[in-house]
Design a protein around this nucleic acid. Structure first.
Lengths: 330, 330
DNA sequence: CTCGCCACTTCAACCGGTTTCGGCATGAGA
DNA sequence: TCTCATGCCGAAACCGGTTGAAGTGGCGAG
């Protein structure tokens, strides 16, 4: 049985109040008293109960982090970023993995509030109406990352998807491509429409992009290429890196060389993007900043300094040029 | 301010004891009483405080999960597996990411016990002496996954690395390869020695493997290939998939075809293994079972049914043949 | 009519900390 | 010597649930 504060107090010959004060650094104590307490705590290998403290203080110093699917390689990056930022500020993370099942996500949300986390970070690319309903009435502060619940007034921080996609397409145009393809994602993905709009933004004065629907995964990218291959596109802007990797594979399978015959650009800059063949040119999401901002914003809400504005904060992505894009062959 | 059990009790005109019993399903209550309580709880949108409950019950229904580096694509798989298994049993997960820094890992361990998690799952490929010391004196049950603290008596569950590596090498030998290379990992990686031993196991009566040191990442695999390329090996068994992906790239860069000129086999079966070019033949770690076993074992320790034996439980890996291995060219 | 039992309910004591408030010395100033 | 401020420290009241023990009312049996 672990030692309690009462054990320490008894051993040091003081009250629990004094032990608490000494160990928390608050309040004052004479040196001899302090030393006795410290010694007793050390002897007993005392560790204060975060539970008891949380009950009294009404804060757990814990955030909930809900991700759509940690199997998708983009999410570990945000998990890492959030965990790291939270840890720096003295907060722990309890993780909920939706596993691509909205029902489970809701279940997790309930459990998180029951655990009395101080705030919840929702990194879910697909928002249902039920989600929005929950979020609106949530008893704890919430911040959305890369997701929006339009008009809900819930703070959000996201990559500037539209600008990112525009940068991607602009890169292709700059290389000399004129007719370019886009492999999109199902509309449940919050960013799908924005990214498609982004590529259109870059194509003013040029032919509309040829857009095909993928699924946000490798498979979808691979099959979507089939529909693009005879359309005369010389470059493909993909919804995300996974899609791009699928495209790369399918292209090679069809005997086309990347980037000589067709250029491919992704989005996210997952770690694997650097290791494909050829290495994938892509748009890097600022995951580190995303995570930091998310916890910063939660912290702000906790300190009552409340809304840093309700409009979603957008973070700038970055073009990283690698080997999968090049000039079109004459 | 959230409603407490006292609020519900007042509104229903009963005592908190009754509310507690009704909501927890334990004990009996007359139908009208129960209905009043339920109605009051609903009206007030009451959610019991897991904190208060944890304090009284002396259990948080939470496990700590410490991973070496969630940036390594193997770990998200175990996170998912553990999270899922824990969730099924009604447990939540608080996540600690070591970020490849042993110091941080220790720090996390301390925080986890302060948070009074009911058990800790440590998925750390690299154990230091400090780790072992902590684990030995831990006040909460611990289980190691894919790690061993030899002789510490700490329960562990791991993939049968040695057998897995043997399967890998045996696959190559079966294909007709005679002189094969091995790209290993630094010895801090718990499984490094075992996996190397495994490939030797499969090579009885054949030349010793040519072994080169990698780093467990893509870079290391790529550079290690340089030392292997002129050694006459026709196949390479890699420490893990990341290493294999590096090898694949470097091989292609050197103008060698896989698997025609040289075969490559990995270990882990991370998701990306299926999407390399060619798709990677590899040894699949049973991450799902690993996770399930880890939580099962923790649960066992909690129920006092204690040790299911102290010797590490080994789970069988599985050979998955894809495109990166083939017969040696004559 | 009284008693005992049974089915519900309430009382109150925890769980392990934090924090407010007040008490006790001690020393300075009058 | 008395007053009073000051510095330390302890008593006790929480925080929000759970749970064993005690209490209450209704009802059948004697």
């Amino acid at each position: 049985m672990a030692a309690t504060i009462a054990d320490v107090a008894a051993r040091a010959g003081v009250s629990t109040a004094t032990v608490s004060r000494v160990l928390s650094g608050a309040g004052v104590a004479r040196a001899p008293t302090r030393d006795r307490v410290l010694a007793a705590a050390r002897d007993l290998d005392y560790r204060p109960s975060g539970i008891a403290r949380a009950l009294k203080r009404r804060e757990t110093r814990t955030f909930g982090l809900l991700v759509t699917d940690i199997g998708n390689p983009f999410y570990p990056q945000v998990v890492r970023a959030v965990e790291s930022a939270a840890h720096e500020r003295g907060y722990g993370i309890v993780l909920g993995n939706g596993g691509d099942d909205p029902e489970r996500e809701l279940e997790h949300l309930d459990l998180l509030v029951e655990r009395r986390v101080d705030g919840i970070i929702v990194a879910s690319s697909r928002m249902t109406a039920r989600h929005a309903a929950f979020l609106r009435r949530s008893p704890v502060p919430i911040v959305l990352v890369n997701a929006t619940a339009a008009g809900s007034g819930i703070p959000a921080v996201a990559t500037a998807h539209r600008r990112g996609a525009e940068m991607a397409a602009a890169h292709l145009v700059g290389l000399g491509h004129r007719v370019i393809g886009h492999i999109g994602a199902p509309s449940e993905h919050a960013a799908a429409a924005e990214r498609e709009a982004g590529v259109r933004d870059a194509l003013v004065g040029l032919p509309d992009p040829v857009v095909v629907q993928g699924d946000g995964h490798v498979e979808g990218g691979a099959t979507a290429v089939g529909a693009l291959i005879d359309s005369g596109v010389t470059a493909i802007a993909c919804y995300n890196d996974l899609t791009a990797i699928g495209a790369l594979r399918a292209l090679r399978g069809a005997g086309m060389r990347v980037p000589q015959d067709v250029s491919v650009i992704g989005f996210d800059d997952i770690e694997m993007a650097a290791w494909t063949d050829p290495p994938l040119t892509t748009i890097r999401q600022p995951t580190g900043e995303l995570g930091r901002w998310a916890v910063e914003r939660l912290l702000g809400a906790l300190n009552g300094s409340g809304s840093n504005g309700v409009e979603p904060r957008e973070l700038e992505p970055e073009l990283v040029v690698r080997g999968s894009t090049g000039q079109p062959s004459a």
